[in-house]
């Protein structure tokens, strides 16, 4: 029973592959069209993921600088330390006295002369505070609270560009979603039409098969396999296109990122993402075939 079931599926698969080989150019063209269509959202996704990890690196250790008023006394500093220690939102902090800051300034190449020419130390005492990862809204709240302390001159928290990046990423995700939705519909429509034409050319075969006792699923099976295999092939083409583009762009990015002394690179699709792409594209092909079969096969009844 199971072997009969397997051999029925095996035969459907074989028929599909024969069908693919029988019309190589037509089939390659539709696979290419699907691949190119899928490579667009895939590319946007790769860009988003790479930028996400960039913003993740930064915001993984949120950090702010507290500059103490120059008029603050030793007791004030100690009291700040105590309050920072007791705040649960703060992971740890580091005190940099004005003397230490000046020494560092003096050691810094190029600034030695400027530091030496100073009559007195203009630098304030400062704390560098590492906070928990609570999202930008919570961080902003903490910043405002610290700013209200009387001894604090300024709390600097450079969350602006992180927020901007997040907004860009949100926009990118929206674009990706819209692209994938539209292009998925296009792929389903392409497959619908391909299968419709196949059904028309196999009209006799379908009618005769029905006459000699073929079930609907027997008749549908090769078409569904065809859709899934073409979809899968489209997914593979999309993967290859994306891999090629990432490789080319990363070579170009090396020059650009050296100028900005960062190491931004496009990450290639992870295994799970690659698998999702292939499964999704196969499913799209299958879906197009399924809809087409459902709307055309019933019209062919033996008379």
């Amino acid at each position: 029973m199971i072997s009969a079931w397997l051999s029925q599926h095996g035969r459907a698969l074989l028929l599909t592959i024969k069908q693919l080989i029988h019309n190589p150019i037509t089939n390659l063209c539709s696979i290419l069209v699907m691949g190119i269509a899928l490579s667009l959202p895939t590319g946007v996704y790769i860009l988003m993921e790479s930028m996400q990890s960039l913003s993740g690196q930064i915001s993984s250790a949120p950090q702010m600088s507290l500059f103490v008023k120059t008029t603050a006394s030793r007791q004030d500093i100690d009291s700040i330390k105590q309050r920072l220690e007791s705040d649960a939102r703060i992971v740890d902090f580091q005190f940099i006295s004005k003397d230490a800051a000046l020494r560092q300034l003096q050691q810094d190449n190029g600034l030695t002369n400027i530091a030496a020419s100073l009559e007195r130390n203009p630098l304030p005492d400062a704390f560098i505070v590492h906070t928990q990862k609570d999202g930008t809204a919570a961080l902003e709240q903490l910043r405002a609270a610290l700013q209200n302390w009387p001894e604090i001159e300024l709390v600097q928290f450079d969350s602006d560009w992180v927020e901007r990046l997040d907004a860009i990423l949100d926009l990118g995700r929206l674009i990706m979603l819209m692209l994938s939705t539209l292009l998925s519909i296009a792929i389903v429509a392409i497959m619908f039409n391909t299968i419709r034409l196949q059904i028309l050319t196999k009209r006799d075969e379908i009618e005769i098969s029905k006459l000699i006792g073929a079930t609907d699923s027997f008749i549908q099976r090769p078409f569904l396999y065809f859709g899934a295999i073409q979809g899968l092939s489209g997914g593979i083409v999309a993967w290859l296109i994306a891999a090629f583009l990432v490789d080319r762009m990363n070579r170009q990015l090396v020059d650009l990122t050296q100028l900005y002394s960062t190491d931004f690179q496009l990450h290639f699709l992870a295994i799970t993402d690659s698998l999702s792409l292939l499964i999704f594209s196969a499913w799209l092909g299958w879906l197009g075939a399924r809809i087409s079969v459902a709307s055309h096969l019933w019209q062919i009844e033996p008379r």
Partner: peptide, 22 residues
């Protein structure tokens, strides 16, 4: 009602494939 795109043998095979013989 023969299928003209396949051989004599494959035409006879069709009912068996439909019924699911090994």
């Amino acid at each position: 009602k023969l299928l003209f795109d396949r051989s004599v043998f494959d035409n006879v095979l069709l009912p068996l494939q439909i019924s699911g013989f090994d």
